[in-house]
């Protein structure tokens, strides 16, 4: 109808793909920083901090990302801030990713064997020292495979940023489709592009998991 798919369309899709990658880098950085705080707050000695962070996680994990994106987009506007769709999408994804990463990392921190905590305490290390020098270095090892696995979710979920008008891969596909009206071909290209971004991450996560499995079975006490 509106002509054929040509090099310009593909360039436009490529540009969208770059924005998808950009968002997939911003979200885990922002979400990682907030998520780390959440993970520590979830195991805080203060009950109120534990409850507050638990409520945050439950609320975010009980709400679809799509609704969080709309809330970020319209909410920031409602309090009088003028934000670009990149800021809105970045902020919403940060809040979303933080809840999930926080929960994953809390599990990893808590799965560091109990004697390690006790030994660190027995050596009269302060709580901060215990965390930084004993628990976290071990927790990071445990946390790597699930974190890489969750990266796949992040890349896929950036596609939802298209609904607040952010021109990433999905949105650029919709725009190209509006001019060509060849939805099946265009969305197939988009699907393949997402697959090309996600599958290496999936494989890497599986590989890390297998390596961990081996390392752990060697270390596991009888």
């Amino acid at each position: 109808m509106g002509g054929h798919l040509n090099i310009n369309h593909l360039m436009f899709l490529g540009q969208g793909a770059l924005w998808t990658i950009a968002l997939s880098v911003i979200a885990p950085i922002g979400g990682g920083i907030v998520g780390f705080v959440i993970a520590l707050a979830r195991i805080s000695p203060l009950k109120s901090v534990r409850i507050a962070s638990g409520v945050y996680v439950q609320l975010i994990q009980g709400t679809p990302l799509l609704v969080i994106l709309f809330l970020g987009y319209f909410g920031l506007a409602a309090i009088g801030l003028k934000v670009s769709s990149l800021t809105a999408a970045g902020a919403s994804l940060t809040l979303y990713v933080a809840a999930y990463l926080g929960e994953i990392w809390r599990g990893c921190i808590q799965s560091v064997p109990k004697p390690q905590w006790e030994a660190a305490e027995g050596l009269a290390l302060s709580r901060t020292q215990r965390m930084m020098k004993v628990i976290l270095p071990q927790a990071i090892r445990i946390a790597t495979p699930p974190t890489v696995g969750f990266m796949v979710q992040i890349v896929k979920n950036t596609s939802l940023a298209s609904v607040v008008g952010f021109v990433e891969l999905m949105r650029s596909g919709q725009i190209v489709n509006n001019s060509l009206f060849e939805p099946f071909a265009i969305y197939a290209i988009i699907a393949v592009t997402y697959f090309a971004m996600c599958y290496p991450l999936s494989l890497f996560s599986q590989k890390l998991e297998r390596r961990m499995g081996r390392g752990r079975s060697n270390l596991a006490p009888a």
Binding site: Y194, F195, C198, Y199
Partner: peptide, 9 residues
């Protein structure tokens, strides 16, 4: 294929 592409697509 399904696990590595977004639901929206």
């Amino acid at each position: 294929a399904i696990r590595n592409t977004p639901l929206l697509v």
